[in-house]
Design a protein around this nucleic acid. Structure first.
Lengths: 343, 343
DNA sequence: TGTTAGCACTCTTTTCATTCGAGTGCTAAT
DNA sequence: ATTAGCACTCGAATGAAAAGAGTGCTAACA
């Protein structure tokens, strides 16, 4: 449908615009040595490409820049799969060279490092916790009146919460309680914890202690933890360097958007595995309509799937971002799998 | 030294400038009903105040704004001690109405709430951890090869780190190790932990296990935790609303400054207790030279002292910020003390 | 003698016209 | 089919003019 020459010109425009953030004129394209045509010819082609919707102008006599459709075509057909620099590969491999144990630290530091490598924002979403099970409950008394409950999951997550010890319960009561809890709750998926506590434990407490309501309230306080943070965002500051964010208002909108886990998480909960690119309005959140999102899934053992994503201006270096993200998620899956298999 | 009229005018200018962020002209001052003089009179007084260094102009025919010396005089002599609104007091008291147990959650949420209440940035620095002692060590095996070490301090802080179990150590070895660790390390101040491990524990390990070096390496991996985060920063986003930060470059500098704990912490480590105000260049960090910092100390029991601070533009509402900070740190000290006393 | 009205003056901000330059689109020549 | 040439468009930069906010000074006033 598009001629070779049109393809070439489109590619040059995207590459150049990604680099400079400035609309590109026919003269500048003609100067490239890959291109052997005069500005006039290029102008004709550009007019056609614009008519087809791949390019757009900022005003009637400006150079052209890619439209969303243009970027879409570029990532689908034109982009050369970029090889990362040796240095980048080395850096990534180094990170994965030591053993991964705690999923959360992996997610957090992945977000940090990828942000730094790409200079975009990184979002890392953990797997659905349906599968995550309680590994152990412990209670550490701090003094007569207060104690800390510690819950460890099979993914290595540690959650803790302090609570007030009801009057009348002594050390041995606590120990007994912990034993009961471990007996009943270990192996229970986190999402069922509250149900289990309300059903099973409630009854047991009644049997063992006289002071039922206080003890039960304590347990609710101590055990009904929020589900672990599942989303890590890093590199917000990088956006300040992007020319499309030289406007404070835009930054405010973006930053406040990023505060809200509920609004971001749905973006990353992709149904399909693999790498996906959402350009501009292809992602459904209005505040992100002039940004692009690249997501890539990673797996932990069986079919626990998480998502790692880069968010940048639509004018982003898709080739590099994709390469980076794919290598990262592959390595991350691999690394987590080897740990999971031993489990 | 200053006449009453000059004091009045200075006060009006500071109050007004804090509100509007615009230089104030003589006509606008004259309009205030507290002021019964004509613009001309006020102009004369302003000229004097400028000569004395309390006011400054942005250009030769602009209105006046307070200089740093002006702010200093204002906070020292003019500012009326602001009564917080009922709503604010209610909000603060509500926060402190329930029991405080974990110092870190208190610090973190204090930072968040104060940022929201004041619309400035909040910095909360914990007490020096010299005093903080280890309360308990636990090891939770996740699978054959990895486990999580959990350390609980007497301040309710929970630190955890995952590590790889050396081959040859089994469940009972781990249990024995934990027992030894608890016997030897409970009550040891965190800052001495590494020394203790290197001295005492090293020897013990040698006695008990054949595979000395591996086991010891494991312990180092598991126990040599970083000291707990001691600084919480909140409300960076608020600065985006301040007119003095309508420049992206300034924001970049401020934000990157705030990334570095090492650069901020010294600001807050005041020698003296109580509330202190640092206006503009009075604080020694150049990046913060057009900001003001208000610090207030809080105590935990005996003489463990932490600092809570507000950071805003020099044009900040000192009266309100001071009132807020003082009430907060008082309540916080009170609340933490009652917990500490039981300890 | 302290206060104020009046007015010239200063400097910024806004507006408007002009120019400049990068780029386009079209036409005619190659 | 390609390209040189040229008129045209529009934004950005420049500069002059006007508006507006405010000052400083002088002279009048109570």
């Amino acid at each position: 449908m598009l001629t070779d020459r049109q393809l070439l010109i489109l590619k040059v425009i995207v590459d150049e615009f990604v680099d400079t953030a400035q609309p590109i004129g026919s003269r500048n394209i003609a100067k490239k040595d890959q291109v052997g045509f005069s500005p006039a010819t290029i102008r004709n082609e550009m007019a056609d490409l614009e008519e087809l919707g791949f390019l757009q102008k900022t005003h009637s006599s400006s150079g052209r820049m890619p439209s969303e459709k243009g970027y879409r075509f570029y990532v689908d057909h034109l982009m050369d799969p970029l090889k990362l620099t040796k240095d980048e590969i080395k850096r990534i491999n180094k990170y994965f060279s030591h053993k991964m144990i705690e999923l959360e630290r992996v997610m957090e530091s992945s977000a940090n490092i990828l942000s730094e490598l790409t200079q975009y924002m990184t979002l890392v979403l953990g797997p659905e916790i349906f599968e995550t099970k309680l590994k152990q409950v412990q209670i550490v008394p701090l003094n007569q009146h207060s104690a800390i409950a510690i819950l460890v999951t099979d993914t290595g997550h540690v959650e803790h919460r302090s609570f007030v010890i009801p009057k009348g319960l002594d050390q041995s009561d606590l120990e007994k309680t912990v034993n009961i809890l471990n007996e009943k709750l270990v192996g229970v998926p986190l999402v069922y914890l509250d149900r289990m506590i309300k059903k099973e434990i409630r009854g047991l407490i009644k049997q063992y202690t006289s002071d039922y309501s206080q003890a039960y309230q304590m347990l609710e306080e101590a055990l009904l933890i929020d589900l672990p943070t599942n989303l890590y965002v890093s590199g917000k500051g990088n956006m300040l360097n992007q020319p499309e964010f030289n406007d404070i208002e835009k930054i405010k909108i973006l930053f406040s958007m990023m505060e809200s886990e509920e609004r971001i998480a749905p973006l990353l909960k992709s149904k399909e595995e693999g790498t996906h690119i959402f350009i501009g309005r292809e992602n459904k959140i209005e505040a992100l309509n002039d940004l692009s999102l690249i997501t890539s899934t990673y797996t932990i053992g069986e079919d626990q799937v998480g998502t790692i994503a880069l968010l940048g201006p639509t004018r982003m270096d898709y080739a590099k971002a994709v390469a980076m993200l794919q290598l990262w998620s592959k390595q991350m899956s691999h690394s987590l799998k080897s740990w999971y298999d031993e489990n």
